[in-house]
Design a binder for these strands. Structure first.
Lengths: 145, 145
DNA sequence: TTATTACTTTATAATCTTTATAATTAGTGT
DNA sequence: ACACTAATTATAAAGATTATAAAGTAATAA
């Protein structure tokens, strides 16, 4: 359940060489267990009790790290501050146009796109597909030489 | 072409009782002719020559007015400032799984997905594709009977 | 054309979110 | 435990957007 999700998240961090600090642990735990889309400030305030000395910058820094690793999505709706969403299970593919290699990358499902398509066209939407195309790091090196 | 678009836009303003000031005219014209997604500040700087005394607040105020009237869409991608888009024609496809019909729907390009994929996988991304699948209104009716 | 009125613009300041900096602290692999 | 390097803290700064009040101006009708 959410505990195994946390464990998975920590494994992801370890695998990508991101240090696991108490603050990171707490922020991740909060994101996973809160089941909401908190702002950075909400997270900061929620963890004030546990980490009285934690800086807001730490929250922002770590949310950025999580986002870069694909664990968290930053939602930029219209309002003034970003909201952060723990990414559960969805992933898409990046495909190398040179050698055909396929690599997973995590990204939350594009629910909003489905909703909009459904609303605008009257379709009853069942699913969608998306792929990103480009050149993998190996082939980029080859191209240079 | 873009001139008639501008004319249409001005008609829309008139029809909705929004005053047409020189600044509004210029901002609209810039949005339509620039063919880009400028930030408020970019618009401000672009019109500096024509309106040396124009305030940034004027740009923001009017972009809000245009948005409220539906002439402009505010795009909140990841970066720090909003971008403003004059109703354009980016689109994807919805495909009926029952009869194969394909219908366009408009949606801003998923630049953010490309960026994330590129960052996480190291690929040099060239493009992406996305389709939504479902049942078209006609086939929904058939299914019922 | 001119007067009126309400809406706009300008200039400035304030607010709020997010990032940068530098010194200190603390994970992690050996 | 040690050394290496990254992360945290505290603070300041930057940057985007909004608020305010005074001055200006577009639209309308007499």
């Amino acid at each position: 359940m959410s505990n195994s999700e946390l464990k998975e998240a920590l494994d992801t961090l370890k695998a990508t060489g991101v240090r696991i600090t108490p603050q990171r642990h707490a922020i991740l735990e909060y994101l996973i267990k809160s089941m909401s889309h908190p702002t950075a400030d909400e997270i900061y305030k929620a963890l004030e009790g546990k980490f009285p000395n934690m800086s807001v910058a730490t929250v922002y820094n770590n949310l950025r790290v999580f986002r870069e690793v694909g664990l968290v999505k930053e939602l930029t709706y219209g309002d003034s501050s970003s909201r952060f969403d723990y990414v559960t299970s969805n992933h898409y593919h990046v495909i190398c146009e040179s050698c055909g290699k396929i690599v997973d990358f995590h990204y939350p499902a594009l629910d909003e796109v489905e909703q909009l398509a459904s609303h605008v066209t009257g379709f009853k939407v069942s699913h969608h597909r998306m792929e990103v195309y480009g050149t993998c790091p190996d082939c980029q090196k080859k191209d240079v030489h």
